[in-house]
Amino acid sequence: MSSPYHPEHAPVGDVGAALMMIDSRLKGIHAGRTGTDPEQQVLVQQFAASLGPKGVDDLLDGACTLIFMFMTWLRKAHEDHDKDVIEYVVPNLVATMRMMPKSVRPEAIPTMAGLVIAAGTGLSPNLWRKQYGDWTDEEMTPLEATAFLLAEHINRIADDPDFATRLITEALTRADEF
């Protein structure tokens, strides 16, 4: 019996917009900018405001799809080495988030860990989260941080600062071919 949280039941959302936001953060970090660039924050806020309610929902679903895709890649990479993705990724993610108290409030960490565990076990993160109600404003930055940290983790494993972005771009390109 298929779980109601299986990805086949989940909206994909706007993966392109979510990837653009994560890639922008990755490039900012690698360019040596630390902290939140006020100009970029204004641009992100303007972008989010231009989306409207449906667009924001699509962006949230897209971020969850990214988390699912990143965790799928990480799970396969860890299985190739007879390792459990949950055991190796989640503690590192939680520890990193705990070092980011201005961006990720402590009460958001269990939810973000749950999203990652759901994705790592083949469940849709957005459907898993939906069972607890609507997204809160306080979860927006931690959700972005979660996708960012997973992408950065993948980039470090691959020893390539653009690998995670390329991974998703190539998957989107292949999906368009069908």
Rank of each mutant, 00 (worst) to 15 (best):
R25T: 12
R25C: 06
L26D: 02
K27F: 01
G28D: 06
G28E: 11
G32P: 08
T34C: 14
D37P: 04
D37K: 09
L43V: 14
V44C: 15
V44F: 10
F47R: 09
L51D: 07
G52N: 01
K54N: 12
D58P: 06
D58L: 14
L59Y: 05
L60T: 11
D61Y: 00
T65G: 02
T65S: 03
W73D: 11
R75T: 11
K76R: 12
K76T: 15
A77D: 05
E79R: 00
D80W: 00
H81P: 00
K83N: 03
D84S: 09
D84Y: 00
V85S: 05
E87Q: 14
E87N: 09
Y88T: 15
V90C: 11
L93I: 05
L93Y: 01
V94E: 07
V94D: 07
A95H: 03
M100I: 15
K102Q: 15
V104Q: 06
V104Y: 02
P106A: 12
E107V: 15
I109S: 10
G114S: 01
A118I: 13
A119L: 11
L123W: 00
P125F: 11
N126C: 12
K130F: 01
K130H: 06
Q131H: 08
Q131F: 07
Q131R: 10
W135G: 07
T136H: 03
E139M: 11
M140R: 05
M140N: 07
